[in-house]
Write a protein that binds this DNA or RNA. Sequence first.
DNA 1: CCCTTATTGAAAATAATTATCAATAAGGAG
DNA 2: CTCCTTATTGATAATTATTTTCAATAAGGG
Lengths: 143, 143
Amino acid sequence: MDLQERLNQEGLRLTHPRIVVMSILNEAQVPLSPQSIHQRAVVGGEDIGLVSVYRTLDLLAQLALVRRVHGRDDCHGYVLASPGHHHHLVCRECERAIEFTGGDDLSTLLQRIQRQTGFEVDDHLLQLYGLCPDCQTHQNNKE
Amino acid sequence: MDLQERLNQEGLRLTHPRIVVMSILNEAQVPLSPQSIHQRAVVGGEDIGLVSVYRTLDLLAQLALVRRVHGRDDCHGYVLASPGHHHHLVCRECERAIEFTGGDDLSTLLQRIQRQTGFEVDDHLLQLYGLCPDCQTHQNNKE
DNA sequence: CCCTTATTGAAAATAATTATCAATAAGGAG
DNA sequence: CTCCTTATTGATAATTATTTTCAATAAGGG
């Protein structure tokens, strides 16, 4: 966890709430809302303020240590982001989110769209939804 | 506009607020929030309730006549959706949103991810951000 | 160990969304 | 065209989410 360095670089401090938020996200397999992060902190005996959770998430998002993930219906949650550009694949049963990289197919697609539309594309958001291997087998058991 | 038929099919009624919301979305080039839709309605002399806007959007989204679009920072707005599966390309200057289709590149990508992760992927969200042709030239003029 | 100042947390202010329910109006039946 | 049924509306209130404010705290360099 290079959080320490990343913060110091910017003249920022490694504070208790920031550590707590990071470690909660680190353990979570699932995108979490500010509220649920706060709740987990409290349950875990870490009495940090909800407001700090909001602030910390904003900060971490700016530092690209954390990323917003959109649900299909409900709105965004936050997950830890490993360095580089990633996308997320979210299980519609257990909510588990895993990262993947776009690869060549996506580059080709982007180039095609740029050519076709004349837009200068500089960012993108790609999220997949489906069933993870575990939930697939559980599903079969039910039937 | 096959709205009439679509509604009747489901035993739903073609009401004033629904017409207003549809026509506002129809004219907009930009994803609109419930609030801004309501505001445009009021400005246009159509005095519909904000609550009905929310309800109408939910309904239209279910009927797939309307789609949620996510901004990079702020959260979602709604745009009219033509039938079929589409994605949106949003200009970061003027907010204009245009549709495009994923095509083969995306299918290839999806298949690769399914193979690599074992997930059964059944839906996806893809949005591109950039500068539309108009805003590119305006940008150049400034410099 | 002290000092500076970034950061916190509590509370209040704002904004966004959802629930409630009597009043209204869509549209089929006659 | 008018009546009747019932889906739908809109005003208000309730709930939930987010942002602002500001005095008190604590990180971390000197």
